[in-house]
Design a protein around this nucleic acid. Structure first.
Lengths: 193, 193
DNA sequence: AGGCTTAAGATACCGTAGTACCTTAAACTA
DNA sequence: TAGTTTAAGGTACTACGGTATCTTAAGCCT
């Protein structure tokens, strides 16, 4: 029985699903483009026609899952409470699904992405930073903003989160609460009424 | 005339010098281990006996230069002034030597190092973080420390510096002053008398 | 239905990081 | 000085990211 030839979005979805399937059991450095192609019953060329690199396809696959987390944009009326709620949701989301050991996985599996690739994306399409910006948009609408914050400051949460991921301490709500209270709010308070 | 066979430290120095020579004109991704080996008149095996990866050898080579900057540990009697002085020295050092375009170079040439490799080193042997720790050691000796700071907080300067390197704004003293005043001191003040 | 265009399938290829393995010079030991 | 150990030199190899090129199926247009 010959497999019907898939096209377009259908094929793309299948490839990302195949990538996710592999990344659940294989660390990033050990994951090969040929493995992805084979698991999706296709070949490397098809991958490279859609994505520019291994990092790209893996990030794309992970992003489909981040979407499923369906993180609400917190809107408690306070930037600090919004941030706490956001990180709580992240910790919750991580402990769900088959993401129990996601910290170790993220470390191992994202570890192979290069700094250039990473920082390139940081400002463009980083999910956490987008949410932080939205939290400040809400504050602006409420009139809670005293001054506009330099763009770079919106990156601080993801920088600290990433740094936290890569050291060997466990990721807990408490730890993020400390980050919010001791590292984020002291900085952000300056821009808030 | 046959080249005498070099050994030990002598060989190691030659290899790092050869690496630096190449990295001055070649971006990280385009630099090959064979190029380094050839330029040092040796072979890849010798490199891999001393360093574990291309990232390792390149970072080691760059570190020899950072050493030459001979950054003094600032000791002004105030953490804030120490940090300002430190970043001023860094900007000065960067504008010296043939480091005029070092920002672009660092971006291009370090961009190929992976996140894992980078964060792995961050806590272990990051030069900037070491200096920040020393600045706090001095504060501790002076009795200026109200409470011990979590380890992760010593990383904030290098994280912000790296993030600044990878966006497209020019690196200036003013920019670092803003970072110190608006992002670092609000966090650190909590631990200072 | 027949012809055309697009993109998937398949295979072969290149370059480089990293390894295996053997030879040989340098340094150490007696 | 002879013998031994250590590490450098040299060559060949593997594996994987990424590319080139050709064939062929799917979808579209008339």
């Amino acid at each position: 029985m010959v497999q019907k030839r898939r096209r377009g979005q259908q094929l793309e979805n299948d490839i990302l699903a195949a990538t996710l399937e592999l990344i659940a059991t294989t660390k990033y450095e050990d994951l090969t483009m040929d493995m992805i192609a084979k698991n999706a019953s296709t070949n490397k060329n098809v991958l490279y026609r859609r994505w520019n690199s291994k990092a790209d396809i893996v990030l794309a696959a992970l992003r489909t899952q981040i979407g499923k987390f369906n993180l609400e944009i917190p809107d408690t009326g306070s930037v600090k409470k919004d941030l706490i709620k956001l990180f709580d949701e992240i910790v919750n989301a991580m402990s769900q699904m088959n993401y129990q050991n996601m910290i170790g996985l993220a470390k191992e599996r994202l570890g192979g992405i290069t700094l250039g690739e990473y920082f390139d994306k940081l400002n463009r399409d980083n999910y956490l930073t987008q949410i932080v910006k939205k939290i400040f948009d809400q504050a602006r609408v409420r009139g809670d903003l005293k001054a506009e914050m330099p763009q770079q400051f919106y990156n601080i949460p993801i920088l600290l989160t990433l740094d936290a991921l890569f050291d060997d301490e466990p990721i807990t709500k408490q730890r993020f609460h400390n980050l919010v209270n001791m590292a984020l709010m002291p900085v952000y308070d300056r821009f808030l009424k």
